[in-house]
Nucleic acid binder design. Structure first.
Ligand SMILES: [Zn+2]
Ligand SMILES: [Zn+2]
Ligand SMILES: [Zn+2]
Ligand SMILES: [Zn+2]
Lengths: 163, 163
DNA sequence: TTCAAATATGTTACATTATAACGTATTTTG
DNA sequence: CAAAATACGTTATAATGTAACATATTTGAA
């Protein structure tokens, strides 16, 4: 049995994830659950090789494909997002926290990356998405997937900076 | 003297770039000009190692730092953009084509990546930028730099697909 | 002009991120 | 149960990006 044990809140979110997978007819295996748990426990976006280190505490022989395959699955299920600018991964708050019974499967989101504290905030702002769709429709481009990432300072870090 | 020779249109854009640099008090050296030329001649986003291959046709001993340093300079001058999802680089149409005398230095832009033909279109849409600023202001986040990239099908490729 | 400082480039080595390819194990389905 | 599909193990390597330090070139002031 997988030795890793997570905080209660994480277990709750993992259970939510498991329900979403079941509803899609896909399987949140022990390994995938463990990788998702490691992503959720991190306060900030985690790189694949950090996850690999975490996995190795439990499964000695883990190798890159182990973690990348799990990440691919979690991305396809919409349980995590990849922050392109950081080559790192975060849990999808929309899918894991909300009571959104329609969640799961990738969705358009926006990410605010604070260069002060490293925290990433997920937005799900329709205005941004609409502005993008509007601008692209003009020139006949059909959007299938969008990446919106902003770097800057969160409220807390800005207050520190201007103090 | 650098042997690489570019199409006339590229030379024109390189001359524009040189003027912009001069106006900033920075220098578009032979090497940087050559790398920018290679970016501009490519019909699509180019990876750093493709550029390195191109450079090596002319300068036998070129190494990764050679091209990465040139790219860093060109990014800082706002002459090229990096497409994060592709780890690849494109010329900035705003800076190089327009008669925008205020151009140069990085600016917020949006990129449409066609998965059919690989072409990338640069937008400079105020609506998208504004929607992003609006959404972030609400939560006290200050945007310093934004990445907006959409993957999908351009008009031409969509027509082929539905034919 | 001459020399010191700043800037740009050369060069070697390495770090980080990601995937290919193939074999084994487990789960599902008829 | 047996066949097929899915998931995982394992080894090797590809692709992208930097650190560190030496050399060369340009700039600017004495
Ligand atoms: Zn999400
Ligand atoms: Zn912060
Ligand atoms: Zn641009
Ligand atoms: Zn196309």
């Amino acid at each position: 049995m997988a030795g890793t044990s997570f905080a209660e809140r994480t277990e709750t979110r993992l259970d939510n994830a498991e329900r979403l997978c079941a509803a899609h007819g896909s399987r949140l295996t022990d390994l995938r659950r463990q990788v998702l748990g490691l992503v959720l426990e991190a306060a900030r976006p985690v790189g694949a090789y950090d996850l690999l280190d975490g996995l190795r505490a439990d499964k000695k022989g883990a190798a890159p494909p182990t973690v990348y395959r799990a990440l691919d699955f979690l991305l396809e299920e919409g349980l995590i997002h990849k922050i392109e600018r950081l080559s790192a991964f975060v849990g999808c708050t929309h899918a894991l926290d909300g009571s959104h019974t329609e969640a799961g499967h990738p969705h358009a989101a926006q990410f605010l990356i604070c260069t002060g504290c490293g925290q990433v905030t997920e937005l799900d702002d329709h205005g941004i998405l609409h502005a993008l769709i509007d601008a692209t429709r003009h020139i006949g481009f059909t959007v299938r997937h969008s990446t919106v990432e902003a770097e800057g300072l969160c409220a807390a870090c800005r207050d520190v900076a201007t103090a």
